[in-house]
Amino acid sequence: MTYNIILRIATKVLCPFILIFALYVQFHGDYGPGGGFQAGVILAAAFVLYALVYGLENCRRVLPPQVVYACMALGVLIYAGTGVVSVLLGADFLDYNVLAHGDPIHGQHRGIFWVELGVITTVFGTMVSIFYAIAGRKGLN
């Protein structure tokens, strides 16, 4: 696909919008349909598309596999870490009410924000790493 100019340009144009859309889905998740799972997959889709058109090597240069693996682990840590923080603040695990001092509703917002951040990170990391793992094998290209 190296010489297919229409695809290349279209991808170049689409990728930023896909990324933005992913972030929209992510941050609108508190109020409407959306959330980390969907956002993570959309985010990953942007990179998959990029890799399909510009080649796996270029994508790997943009997004090194180590970063992807780190994302998988990091997301879990963010998620569980949120729970641990609420434990440290004296409430039950994942009880968001205590995350903002004295303001349960605000606390819920914060809690969901962090948890969803954990989810998007892990889902994104997992999706891309599955793609890398299967697409990057010798003999398949």
């Binding site: 998988m72 879990v76 840590l77 729970g83 434990v87 039950d92 695990f93």
Partner: peptide, 21 residues
């Protein structure tokens, strides 16, 4: 009081950390 959840969360977080070690 939090032992029940720690029982599960500790190995879970540790698994994530372990991947990077």
């Amino acid at each position: 009081a939090h032992l029940p959840v720690l029982q599960v969360v500790i190995p879970l977080m540790a698994a994530a950390v372990c991947a990077a070690l």
